[in-house]
Write a protein that binds this DNA or RNA. Sequence first.
DNA 1: TTTCTAGATTAGAAACATTCTAAAATATTG
DNA 2: CAATATTTTAGAATGTTTCTAATCTAGAAA
Lengths: 142, 142
Amino acid sequence: MAASSDKIIRDVTARLRAAGMRPTRQRIALARALFAKGDRHITAEQLHAEAQDQHVGISLATVYNTLHQFTRAGLLRELAIGSGRSYFDTNLSHHHHFFYEGSGQLVDVAGDLVKVSTVPAPPKGTRVAGIDVVIRITERNR
Amino acid sequence: MAASSDKIIRDVTARLRAAGMRPTRQRIALARALFAKGDRHITAEQLHAEAQDQHVGISLATVYNTLHQFTRAGLLRELAIGSGRSYFDTNLSHHHHFFYEGSGQLVDVAGDLVKVSTVPAPPKGTRVAGIDVVIRITERNR
DNA sequence: TTTCTAGATTAGAAACATTCTAAAATATTG
DNA sequence: CAATATTTTAGAATGTTTCTAATCTAGAAA
């Protein structure tokens, strides 16, 4: 546990350095929260609350800054599903999502469980950056 | 043009009545703006500006109310793609979208140009409400 | 170690989309 | 027309995200 967390921190430190960012106390604390456990979908507000719970003083502005920097550095993926807040996904592998229409909750769907067999060519002058499949689900009306 | 616009208004009036809504001046003006031309993706803010341009006095609150009512009545589809604002889509047929990562612009992709051949079963107690495929595109780096 | 400075953090204000409130206006029914 | 249920509205309130400009800090250099 401590070992794997340390490994994560060393990895993140290296990746921050590679992206020209200093490994500060705040960035390391957020990296630990984000990457120590398995895959997560988290909002800035949630991550900020989690840091507060662990008595790591970090401002909300820094949480936002850091999430965007991590995203730019390829450590996170920003999900723009469901309006309102943005989710940040620590699962970088090819995958899709179930989206609960009621609560806005997201659940991963492994990439190989969804097959998109046909897609049109992108408009001239553009390239496909990614294909996101969102399976919207609702409570079944009994 | 005038004929088809009138037809749209008669249709909308009927659908509003069917949904228990009164066909008011505001709702009819918005319906005309939304449905007179072909398929559209529009935000509340944009639709409000368009009404102002045509000297139809409608408050922004009414635009929001009306968009939601139309959505509930099955006249529109709300798109929760791209964070921040919500788009309302007048194209009710089965289709997907290109999403320009730079500008947030949406372009329709006909439903039959995308084939999702495999999807997992939804979690227990839920049913699939829909499957949305978003093809994210960016300017091609020359 | 101390000093220097570019980069990082911060509180609070600002910006933005959206929803709410409760008062005034309007459409429909009788 | 009168009665009443619905609708519209301005403006306030909410929630998320970004901005600002002052302060702090990590790392480099002396």
